[in-house]
Computed example of a mutant assay.
Amino acid sequence: MALQDVIVTIDLLKPSGLTGELGKPLIITQKTGDSTIKNYSDIANVSPDFATTTEAYKKAAAVLRQPNRPATLSIATYDPAGTDIKTPLEAIERYYDQDWFFVVTAGLELTDEIGVADYVEGKNFKFYAVKTIDEESRNAFKAKNYKRVIDFYHPIAEEHPDAALVGELGSQPVGENTWKFKTLTGITPISVNAAELALIHEDGAIAYVNKSGVPQTSEGIVASGDFIDLLHGQAWVKANMESAIQGVLMNNNRVTMDGRGIALLDSAANTVLQRAFNQGIIAVDADGNPVFTVSTLSADEIPDEERAKRIYNGLSFSYKQSGGIHGANVKGQILV
Results as ranks from 00 to 15, higher is better:
13 L>Y: 14
310 R>S: 12
181 F>V: 10
163 A>F: 02
156 I>F: 07
223 A>R: 00
297 L>A: 14
147 K>T: 13
330 V>N: 11
16 S>M: 06
202 E>W: 11
151 D>P: 07
229 D>A: 12
279 Q>W: 07
229 D>W: 07
133 I>L: 14
330 V>H: 07
1 M>S: 14
59 K>N: 10
69 R>M: 03
99 D>Y: 07
193 N>C: 09
98 Q>H: 13
323 G>K: 08
316 S>D: 07
15 P>T: 08
163 A>Q: 00
208 Y>H: 03
250 M>C: 12
214 V>M: 13
232 H>V: 07
164 A>T: 04
278 N>S: 12
304 D>N: 12
236 W>E: 02
143 A>K: 08
16 S>T: 12
96 Y>Q: 02
68 N>A: 15
245 I>N: 01
250 M>A: 14
51 A>N: 11
143 A>C: 09
230 L>A: 13
253 N>W: 11
331 K>M: 14
287 D>V: 11
175 G>E: 02
298 S>K: 15
190 I>M: 07
188 T>W: 06
101 F>T: 00
304 D>A: 15
90 E>W: 05
62 A>V: 06
276 A>K: 00
225 G>E: 08
99 D>V: 04
219 E>L: 11
117 A>K: 02
118 D>R: 08
281 I>N: 01
212 S>L: 14
185 T>C: 09
55 E>R: 09
139 N>R: 11
19 T>P: 00
293 T>F: 10
233 G>D: 03
325 I>P: 09
66 Q>Y: 02
320 K>G: 12
73 L>D: 00
294 V>L: 05
152 F>C: 10
189 P>M: 10
280 G>A: 09
86 K>Q: 09
213 G>T: 05
102 F>W: 09
264 L>T: 10
102 F>V: 05
230 L>F: 15
251 N>Q: 11
2 A>P: 15
79 D>F: 04
334 I>D: 10
197 L>D: 06
208 Y>N: 01
280 G>S: 07
232 H>R: 11
113 E>Y: 06
130 V>Q: 00
223 A>P: 00
309 K>F: 13
107 G>K: 03
47 S>K: 04
202 E>D: 14
255 V>P: 01
322 S>R: 13
155 P>Y: 09
12 L>G: 11
251 N>E: 10
25 P>T: 08
178 T>A: 10
